[in-house]
Design a protein around this nucleic acid. Structure first.
Length: 288
DNA sequence: CTTCTTGTTACTGA
DNA sequence: ATCAGTAACAAGAA
């Protein structure tokens, strides 16, 4: 599922690929994905030049030259943004399921065509993602609800320690709460807690100083490393080139139910439970 | 056929 | 106020 590292990978790629391009045509095949009226959405975008592609948590923001408005894109579970030069065969090669690598496919709901004939496809198998044009005031309101950017300088150990105080949630729910820290999802929450030897069910107010420090360090380390590997493809995720991420082989607990714990000298078997409403993987031996 | 999956929001009840 | 739990959204995998 797209979490911070996956969204960051796409944002960096798109910034390079579509910055400065002028939109020539916008096709909306599934209007419910767009949270504005289709006419307002299309009329605004056609003729616009892309100024900037950026991100806050898992939310993508696209700005345009000569406009105050921002296009927000949220992938939710299965959204994709895939860019193709005109006529180029999409990378990713040999789909086992036939021709899903050819775009547009049956999950392509919006198509942006630029003046140079290159195209950006919004695909979404489960149709939970959304696109929305917002004014600066609306944008401010949306961004107010986001917590720290975990890789930013202001997300410091000192500030993290402050956040942990007076909180009563279990630590998994804490990591998933976008209003506290923005961008961690189910996969990285499990990985961060495994790396920190802390049980996901453990209440945040029972953590000792060492555990708090370790969790803080691993949030930064694991998210950064996942970006370096261009994200995790568990099933649906693809980057802006349509390719899979490389972090899956570095996953230590997520998706490893009933397998042996990879920690040295640990004989545990990875268990799967439901915590904070999500499938949660952990080792009951080395995660205390 | 049923059950499970996931990000987010909305809602309920403690 | 705060938190835990669940439903809803959709469609595919097992």
């Amino acid at each position: 599922m797209p979490e911070l590292p996956e969204v960051e990978t796409i944002v960096r790629d798109l910034q390079r690929k579509i910055k400065g391009k002028k939109i020539k045509e916008v096709k909306v095949n599934l209007p419910k994905i767009v949270k504005n009226s289709k006419k307002i959405f299309v009329d605004f975008l056609v003729g616009r030049k892309i100024k900037k592609v950026s991100r806050r948590g898992k939310l993508i923001m696209i700005n345009f030259i000569d406009s105050e408005k921002t296009l927000l894109i949220h992938f939710k579970m299965t959204g994709q943004l895939i860019f193709q030069q005109k006529g180029k065969i999409i990378a990713g090669g040999h789909s086992q399921k036939g021709r899903l690598d050819d775009l547009p496919n049956k999950y392509t709901h919006i198509i942006f065509t630029f003046q140079d004939k290159s195209q950006l496809f919004y695909n979404d198998l489960r149709q939970f993602g959304c696109l929305k044009l917002v004014s600066p005031a609306q944008l401010t309101k949306v961004l107010m609800k986001f917590g720290y950017e975990p890789l930013n300088f202001d997300f410091s150990l000192e500030n993290f320690e402050k956040m942990v105080k007076n909180k009563k949630k279990n630590v998994k729910a804490f990591l998933l709460d976008q209003s506290l820290i923005a961008g961690i999802g189910n996969i990285y929450a499990d990985e961060i807690l495994f790396a920190s030897c802390v049980r996901p069910q453990k209440n945040i107010d029972t953590l000792n100083n060492k555990e708090i420090k370790l969790i803080f360090k691993n949030i930064k380390k694991i998210l950064q490393r996942a970006i370096d590997f261009r994200g995790t493809t568990f099933n649906n995720y693809r980057n802006a080139d349509g390719k899979k991420g490389g972090f899956k082989k570095l996953l230590k607990v997520y998706g490893r139910e009933n397998k042996k714990c990879v920690r040295r000298n640990c004989s545990g078997i990875i268990k799967k439970t439901k915590t904070a409403g999500r499938g949660t993987h952990f080792c009951s031996i080395c995660q205390k």
